[in-house]
Every structure is written in C-alpha cells, then in structure tokens.
Write a protein that binds this DNA or RNA. Structure first.
Lengths: 224, 224
DNA sequence: GTTTTCACCGACCGATCGGTCAAGCCCGGC
DNA sequence: GCCGGGCTTGACCGATCGGTCGGTGAAAAC
C-alpha cells in the first residue's frame, strides 16, 4: 500500500522526483492556487523557480502535465490519508475524525489543494480530470458511508445522507477562501468546531425529541 | 432606495443598459463562470454574442469593465435583497430567512454569482475588488448580527459568532460546486435543509438539561 | 438635403502565450 | 587528454491575447 512516503514542501506523493522537480511543483502549485491555471504562464513558473522556461520542458512535457502532477499529488492520497486516521469507535467520532483528518490534509498541502480545486472548475475539458473525479467520488462516498453508519447506530437522526455529506464537505472545502494561517486557529481546530456545531446543532440545550426533519415553524414568509 | 428594478436574463441591476449590453453581460457572465476570467477571451464573448469583437469595445472600455459590471451586478444588491426578506420574529427564523434569501439570489443570478466568486480569488489585483469586498463584509456582518441576536435571545447556545457565520456561508457558497438545476431541489429548499441540520444538529434528539416532564429515553446517552 | 450620431465591422497592432530546438556547460569515467 | 550525457540556456516559432483603427450604413437631427 502506498505509504505517503515522500512529502516535501507541501508536495505530496512525488516519490522518485528530483529536487528541481519538487521545486517546480511547489512553485507551480502556489501560482496555480493564487492566479489560476490560465492566469499562470510557463514564464511565471520559470521565473518563480529562478530557471529558464526551457528547463520546465526538460522535466515536464507540457503545462498540463505540471498541473496534473500538482493536482494528482494533492488528491491522490486524500482518501487513504483520511481513511487511515479513522479510529474504531462510535460512528459520530469517525465523522469527527474524518473532518479533522481532511483539515490536516488541507493544512499540509494547502497550495496544491487550492490549485486543484479551483483550476478544476474553470476547466472546460473536464475529461482531463476523470481520475481526479473518481477519487473525489470515492472520498465522498466514504463519508456517506460513515453518515449512514451513524444513522444505523442511532447516533444521528434520519437525515438525507448525500445532503449531510455536502454540508460537511462544504464547511471543509470553503475553508481555503477565508483561512489565514497567520491569524486563525489550525484547520484541525476549525474542523472540530464545525463538527460540534453540525453534530450538536446551534440550538440551546432544551431540545425536545424531534424526529421530524422539518423546521419548527414553516410559516412566515415575507414576499417582498 | 434601489428597487432592484431591472433584472433580465439573470443580470441584476443594470438599469439603463441596452439589450445588447445586457446580452453581452449575460454571455460574459456565463463564460467567466465556466472558464474563468483569464480563460475567457474577448473573442469568446463576441462569438457567443454573435457580434464582432470591436463592438465589445464600443460598449465597454475593456475586459475588466465587463467583468466589473458582471460582478458588481451580482453582489451589488445581495445585501439589500436579503435584508428585505428578513421577517420580524424569532432571530433563529431570521437566520433561516437569511439562508433562504441568499439561496434565492444564487438561483436567480447564478452565472454572475459564480463568475464573481471564482474570478475574484484568482485575481492577484484584489484592489480592483475593493467595492466588492466592502459589500461582502457588510453582508457577512449582517449575518453575524443575526447570530448574536439569536444568542442574546437564548435561542442558540453561546457559539463563536464569526465561526458560525462562516459555517453558514460555507454551506451556501459551496453550492455552486455541486448544484445541478436539472436534478436537485431548488436552492431555497436546500438552504432550508441546511438550516435545519445546522440549527437542530444531526444528533438524534435526546433531552439534555431543562426541567422537561418527559422521561429520558433509556439507553444511550452522550455527554457534551 | 445635409450633417450628426451611433451601432457595428474587418483588418491590424504589439505583446505574450505554450512550445521547440540547437547548442553550451559541467562533471565523472576512460 | 576527451568523451558522453544530464542539466541548462537563449533565440525563436506560430497562434492567440487584449486592444485600436478607419470606416460603413442607417437612422435621427437640423
């Protein structure tokens, strides 16, 4: 099993890569993340690395390959990374561990993560990302499995499983838009807070047993 | 007060604009949303509109202005749009209305919304978006005010207000990444579901504290 | 009837894009 | 000595970028 062996400078899973290649991947990831795929030129990457543009083509066949290495490196092992951090125990705690582990992955490979998640959606040629999509589905299905498990165990109420998964992933995936590594808490701590809010709810303690998924008063709707 | 008067083809707040300008804004918004700002050329926009590239420069001074009109149109009135849909009543219901109204705005101006939220983050020159940032802050502060109100009213527990706001906005802002207008429920319905999950929590209903006459269900009891 | 205005277009500009190529540079093995 | 091969380079390519220009034709204004 792949052991997530070589992780350096935030570039994951680039086992047999030379230092120069790792440098290129790190700089390219940072640039893709901040300026987007189309907004980043090969000259930008070369300049950031302090090398000539030609050298990029010595190590990579084209721009797409650089992006692919960056993106694949960031999502390749996310599923394995998270799965290996799910402890035995109550399903709700597995969900909590899922969120914390995902946040940890985000913290470690932040630039590559952002690059792959942002560039992907602006790319009209989605077929290029098929492998990435497959992994993403596996990751999301894994979470849905945990949620179903928690429902079956009676730990959480009978909510819509895909929607619950989307809510949880939203809280994690949107982090890169506001997370400031200098100011905020760690991503892991943030994930803990979000888990608490989603699992226990915001409502103050007096809760009655309420199996109905509907909000209390559906009335009042100001039309204008 | 601005009345959100002219909204056509999903292009908001373009009052005195001609049909052609509205067409350009609509097509540009759609293209920016799907291919990003850098990935969309002026030729692309002209082709999508069935006009010459020169005509774009007759109606707009440059590419940035087209983007600005698209982005400003989508966020200009978000705050007012949502504020006007907050009913009187319990603060928790105000938060619910906030989420539903934001979702409605997303549904109406989907392309412009996506274009402005995605292109913005890939733009190294953030100063261009200062006005947009100001509005975004006002919008977020408005939500935080509602949350604080709900805490003061005892409706929700003493959570971290900024973090709670981020969780709520995450659930709404991430929607454009997975929402499929042909398959899923309406954004408003999704917002209702998310509100229910966040407000009531996922945990199956057990009494916590409070002098409730009901006998606690035997068995499983989780602290926290 | 003439002039002004305005939506609109094709041709074109310099700059930059992704990508190529032939030729060094450097260094260990002979 | 000098020879090969991996790392590195600058000059260069065709295509496309955002943007400009002079002009056209028809309606509005005079």
């Amino acid at each position: 099993m792949t052991e997530l062996s070589t992780m350096k400078d935030g570039v994951a899973n680039q086992a047999e890569a030379s230092d120069r290649v790792l440098q290129i991947l790190a700089e390219a990831g940072r640039l893709f993340a901040s300026k987007g795929f189309e907004g980043t030129s090969m000259r930008d990457i070369a300049l950031a690395c302090g090398i000539s543009k030609s050298l990029l083509y010595h190590h990579f066949s084209n721009k797409d390959e650089i992006y692919a290495r960056v993106a694949v490196g960031s999502t390749l092992e996310l599923y394995l990374f998270v799965r290996d951090r799910i402890p035995d125990g109550p399903p709700s705690q597995k969900i909590r561990a899922f969120m914390v582990a995902t946040a940890e992955y985000f913290r470690r490979y932040r630039w590559a993560w952002i690059a792959s998640t942002t560039a992907f959606w602006n790319d009209p040629d989605r077929s290029r990302h098929k492998e990435r999509l497959t992994r993403r589905d596996r990751f999301e299905n894994f979470l849905r499995g945990l949620i179903q498990e928690a429902i079956d165990a009676g730990e959480i109420r009978k909510v819509d499983v895909p929607m619950t998964g989307r809510l949880i992933l939203s809280s994690l995936n949107w982090m890169h838009r506001w997370y400031n590594p200098n100011k905020s808490a760690t991503p892991e701590q943030i994930a803990e807070v979000f888990f608490d809010m989603i699992f226990n709810g915001l409502r103050s303690g007096e809760l009655v047993a309420l199996p109905s998924p509907e909000p209390p008063k559906s009335g009042r709707r100001k039309s204008r």
